[in-house]
């Protein structure tokens, strides 16, 4: 069981991060934002930054920090919200999201000064790079863990499976992948686009697999993350977290239309009202 204080903290931070996502996305105006895939992953990212990872916003290059790689880079709003709430970036910087000359692009761009570990956005590559980072930690006998957030649609990519097989070959049990299974990808549901049993695929690739039904429940997410963090099974770990696309905003939940788009004012006001009354 996850510690209640930690669960409370993660829930509190998750609520703030949801608001940050809406604020950044609205501030981006006509440039739009990927709302749905950020909101589905909030408890996972909040759980990592506020309950699981050893990290220090004042020292982003601390040698023994745990690494976080957001391979589903389009969901960067969740990442930037975590960087804001932990203090890697200021609120003022947060609002530069997608602006001209901002370092907060529509997909994360490596920037160690602000805690952005790996460039992602071209799907699959962040995960494969994370596998290399986990191997490097093994080579150097470092104790830190590598956490990697992967999308369920992203599991369509061939590079995911090239890297997954290789991670199992090298017994990278310091690597914990979390698949944000929100069931919706760009052009349709994951069932419509590529209906495969990803649990079976991860198992076949040689990974320890755990499925979390409550992927938007802080307590369940924390418990799964702790279990995988503390396991030295000799296998890399994957948590398949069943989440809700657009979680927390009624008109975004399960919606294909809110995968990525601009947010008009009336929707912004409704979203904020819903979050304030939650």
């Amino acid at each position: 069981m996850a510690n209640k204080k930690t669960v409370d903290l993660v829930e509190e931070k998750a609520a703030l991060m949801r608001r940050d996502v809406i604020e950044m996305g609205y501030a981006a105006g006509g440039r739009g934002a990927h709302f749905g895939p950020a909101l589905s992953s909030i408890e996972i990212v909040a759980g990592l930054f506020f309950g699981i990872m050893n990290h220090d916003p004042k020292n982003p290059t601390m040698a023994d920090r745990d690494r976080f790689v957001q391979s589903k880079g389009h969901a960067c709003l969740a990442y930037y919200a975590a960087l804001t709430e932990t203090g890697y970036i200021t609120r003022e910087q947060m609002y530069t999201f997608k602006g001209d000359n901002s370092f907060l692009a529509g997909h994360p761009t490596r920037n160690m000064k602000y805690g952005i570990e790996v460039t992602s956005g071209s799907l699959g590559n962040g995960f494969a790079v994370a596998c290399g980072m986990a191997k490097a930690a093994k080579i150097k006998s470092d104790d830190h863990k590598v956490y990697c957030l992967v999308g369920d649609g992203e599991c369509n990519e061939g590079i995911i499976w090239e890297a997954a097989m290789n991670a199992a070959k090298y017994e990278l049990d310091n690597l914990i992948a979390i698949v944000d299974r929100n069931g919706v990808q760009l052009a349709g549901t994951t069932k419509d686009i590529m209906d495969v049993d990803i649990e079976a695929l991860w198992r076949a690739a040689g990974w320890d697999v755990v499925v979390v039904e409550g992927g938007n429940d802080a307590s369940s997410v924390l418990e799964a993350l702790q279990g995988m963090r503390d396991s030295s099974s000799g296998k890399p770990h994957v948590i398949i977290a069943n989440t809700t696309k657009g979680k927390g905003i009624s008109f975004m939940e399960g919606s294909l239309g809110w995968h990525a788009r601009p947010m008009p004012q009336e929707f912004y006001e409704q979203a904020v009202a819903e979050l304030e009354n939650a």
Binding site: R110, E117, V118, G124, N125, A128, V129, A130, C131, G132, M133, A134, K135, A136, A137, I139, K140, G158, I159, E162, A163, M165, N166
Partner: peptide, 17 residues
């Protein structure tokens, strides 16, 4: 797996190898 040849290499390089 040539795609992974490159990405795995990048992961090693980012960690100082």
């Amino acid at each position: 797996a040539e795609q992974n040849l490159i990405d795995f290499t990048v992961g090693l390089a980012l960690e100082g190898l």
